[in-house]
Simulated scan of single mutants.
Amino acid sequence: MGYYDPSGYAMCPPGSKKGRAADSRIEIIDADKGTFRIIDWDSAPNTASLPPKNTIFRVVRKEEYKELLKQKNNKNAALRRLIPWLKSNKMDIHEIHPVNLGGSPTNLLNKKFLFRKTQHNPVTGFWNSITAESKRALK
């Protein structure tokens, strides 16, 4: 009787990009589409809202990201004009599902105000490390 791996990782053919390394926090869903999910959330800071644990993320291609970043910056600038106390309280606008990983750049439900040093910096570090790990895994 063989071993059954419910993740499907053990069933991947050699050289396949589906699956994950033993020490990885992510699992590649579809390398061609750049999709993955986070399977280990332990290093995520508890100071910020996070997307649902079953979220499928997509690494956004450089060309698409340029346009999305423009939309995000325009929306956030408008919010800062409407809510001037963000600057005086040293708060940043954080996207719960990062734009570079397929999150909406303009949907207000994807935005949260975080204190820069105590909340925003740790969560940005977490997402930067997830992005780097996903890009390495998708190479």
Rank of each mutant, 00 (worst) to 15 (best):
I93F: 08
E95H: 14
L68S: 02
L109N: 11
I83T: 08
N107A: 14
I93W: 01
N89R: 15
V99S: 06
K117I: 07
D92H: 13
K90Y: 14
H97M: 12
G103F: 06
P84R: 12
W85D: 14
Q71C: 08
P105D: 09
T106Y: 04
L79M: 14
K72D: 00
A77W: 05
L101H: 02
R81F: 11
T118Y: 04
N73L: 07
P84M: 11
N100Y: 11
I96S: 00
G102E: 03
N100W: 10
L108K: 01
G102I: 04
L68H: 03
L108I: 06
A78L: 13
F113P: 00
F113E: 04
G102L: 08
N100M: 10
I93D: 02
L108Y: 10
K117A: 12
N110V: 01
S104V: 07
I96D: 01
K90N: 15
K117N: 14
L86S: 04
N89Q: 15
R80H: 04
N73D: 08
P105R: 10
L108P: 00
L69I: 02
K70I: 03
Q119G: 03
W85T: 15
D92C: 13
K111P: 00
D92F: 07
K111N: 02
K90A: 14
L82W: 05
I83F: 09
L108Q: 01
H97E: 15
K75C: 12
R116H: 15
Q119F: 00
G103L: 08
A77D: 12
R81C: 08
K70E: 12
Q71H: 09
E67G: 09
S104A: 06
P84C: 10
G102V: 08
E95W: 01
M91H: 07
H97R: 07
L68D: 04
K111A: 04
I83Q: 10
Q119L: 02
L82I: 07
N74Q: 15
N74K: 15
Q71F: 13
G102C: 05
N89W: 14
S104N: 07
N76V: 11
